[in-house]
Deep mutational scan, measured.
Amino acid sequence: MIINNLKLIREKKKISQSELAALLEVSRQTINGIEKNKYNPSLQLALKIAYYLNTPLEDIFQWQ
Rank of each mutant, 00 (worst) to 15 (best):
M1S: 07
I2T: 11
I2N: 07
I2L: 12
I3T: 14
N4M: 03
N4K: 02
N5E: 04
N5W: 05
N5M: 06
N5G: 03
L6H: 02
K7D: 04
L8R: 14
L8V: 14
I9P: 00
R10G: 01
R10Y: 02
R10N: 01
R10W: 02
R10L: 05
E11K: 09
E11Y: 06
K13N: 12
K14W: 06
K14C: 09
K14Y: 08
K14S: 12
I15F: 10
I15A: 03
Q17G: 05
S18R: 12
E19C: 07
E19N: 11
E19L: 09
E19V: 10
L20F: 07
L20M: 08
L20I: 05
A21W: 01
A21F: 00
A21S: 08
A21R: 03
A22P: 02
L23D: 09
L24G: 03
S27E: 10
S27H: 11
R28A: 14
R28I: 15
R28G: 09
R28D: 12
Q29S: 15
Q29W: 13
Q29M: 11
Q29R: 13
T30Q: 09
T30P: 01
I31W: 01
I31M: 04
I31G: 00
N32F: 06
I34V: 05
E35W: 01
K36S: 15
N37V: 03
N37F: 07
N37R: 08
K38G: 07
K38R: 09
K38C: 10
Y39M: 09
Y39Q: 11
Y39F: 14
Y39V: 14
Y39K: 11
N40V: 15
P41Y: 03
P41C: 06
S42A: 06
S42W: 04
S42P: 10
L43T: 08
L43K: 10
L43H: 10
L43M: 14
Q44N: 12
Q44F: 10
Q44E: 14
Q44P: 12
Q44H: 14
K48S: 08
I49Q: 00
Y51D: 09
Y51Q: 12
Y52M: 10
L53I: 04
L53C: 03
N54T: 09
N54F: 05
N54H: 11
N54D: 14
T55G: 02
L57F: 07
L57D: 02
E58L: 09
E58A: 10
E58M: 07
E58R: 10
I60S: 01
I60V: 07
F61V: 02
F61M: 03
F61D: 01
Q62R: 11
W63R: 04
W63D: 03
W63I: 06
Q64G: 12
Q64N: 12
Q64Y: 08
